[in-house]
């Protein structure tokens, strides 16, 4: 459904995801190989409030905005961010739709798929050597941890949004 409320919520979540992703790029990172993936919090909130298609839009919107506004639409960074985003959606959507997983499972699966997608594309497109898989212990361990954290944050945020909306019409919600 393309109700104005749904489109407004989507726009806010995309803006939030872009802001979080940007913040992460600007803050100093003592562990450059590890990304927190804070932008995914907004995708998870979209899953809860708008359903799977909402989540897909928020990730697609974030990846496109970051690519355009942070320079280099076809730069390796943007290509890898798109690969990670696509891989994470490919996993998060079925995990979410199955109804068996909470946000923790969806988020963890998405974070892990993100690094696997990135490593795969980096190996096939740029490195042409599986040696890059040596990064998996660090990146995989971090993906599990950040996935759990982002799920916790998204649960809190979604809780606030849902409670605040409870008095109003929330027709746009839940089309799992």
């Amino acid at each position: 459904m393309r109700s104005p409320a749904r489109i407004t919520t989507l726009a806010l979540l995309v803006a939030g995801a872009f802001a979080l992703a940007s913040l992460e790029r600007v803050l100093p990172n003592p562990f450059p190989m590890i990304r927190l993936g804070l932008g995914n919090i907004m995708t998870l909130v979209a899953f809860v409030t708008l359903g799977a298609s909402g989540g897909a839009w928020v990730t697609a919107g974030r990846v496109s905005l970051v690519a355009v506004l942070w320079g280099g639409v076809f730069s390796p960074t943007a290509v890898l961010s798109a690969a990670g985003g696509a891989a994470s959606l490919l996993i998060m959507i079925p995990l979410f739709l199955s109804g068996r997983f909470s946000l923790y499972g969806v988020s963890m699966g998405g974070a892990y798929a993100h690094i696997l997608g990135q490593l795969t594309v980096a190996i096939l497109l740029y490195v042409r050597s599986p040696g890059l898989l040596a990064l998996m212990p660090v990146m995989g361990g971090a993906a599990i941890a950040t996935g759990l954290f982002n799920a916790w944050a998204a649960g809190k945020l979604a809780g606030v949004l849902v409670t605040q909306n409870a008095g109003r019409s929330t027709q746009h919600a839940v089309d799992r």
């Binding site: 809860v48 909470s102 027709q171």
Partner: peptide
């Protein structure tokens, strides 16, 4: 109104 129950998700 469709209520969202986020308890099982969080």
């Amino acid at each position: 109104r469709s209520e969202i129950n986020i308890a099982p998700l969080s």
